[in-house]
Design a protein around this nucleic acid. Structure first.
Lengths: 106, 106
DNA sequence: CTTAAATACAACCAAATGGTTGTAGATCAG
DNA sequence: CTGATCTACAACCATTTGGTTGTATTTAAG
């Protein structure tokens, strides 16, 4: 999970994710969109791959980068879990308020 | 957004988020749960604060750390957007398959 | 008043990050 | 075959990160 969030904590990498979820691209293809060397883009793809957000499939001379949505879903599920905690907290606070009101009413 | 994902890319910080979304805690209170100095925890809280995931409210001698769910929601919305792209891609691939089948059928 | 607790902050350190250049191996095109 | 293209990888560098210790300030407690 560390790796998933770390991978997403960079605008270039998020843009790569966006592109490869929309369709496959080669690494040099991706590199053309960013103001940095191909090696740098290669490293970014490596980070995404380490996080399970993309996989590479060699096809002749080039390497097609394709997005995997599963890791994204795990991250999303964790955030949803945090939101659940948040909601439950307010439910409890609501209970406390109700109890206080009852107490005052008597 | 960089800062939100970066903040979540650390297990200690995610655990702090979990705790403060469930209820307020002081910094030294939080620090007791981790095998590191209070200063280290202070820095983690600082990173979370910079990402807008928590705010600090001074209360006498101690500083209550309280979670904010809005930044989480923005991150979740982005991940959902990526999933949408992914789904649309398969819808398009489905169209291609349908068209190919029609062509073969004739 | 004195002491302990909670926080803040500066200085320091090792390791990781994000970039570069250079070199080399495959593979496709002419 | 030759040359251009795509990828891989090593070496290097500046900055950031995640931790430490030490010192200072504020506040609560005895």
């Amino acid at each position: 999970m560390d790796r998933v969030f770390h991978a997403l904590a960079d605008a270039t990498r998020r843009d790569i994710v966006r592109r490869v979820l929309d369709g496959e691209h080669s690494i040099s293809d991706l590199a053309r969109h960013y103001p940095m060397s191909m090696t740098a883009v290669q490293k970014h793809v490596g980070v995404l791959e380490g996080a399970g957000l993309v996989v590479k499939r060699r096809q002749g001379r080039e390497q097609r980068v394709v997005g995997r949505v599963e890791a994204l879903r795990r991250a999303e599920a964790l955030l949803a879990e945090y939101e659940r905690l948040w909601r439950e907290r307010f439910d409890r606070m609501g209970d406390v308020l109700m109890t206080e009101m009852e107490g005052n009413g008597r």
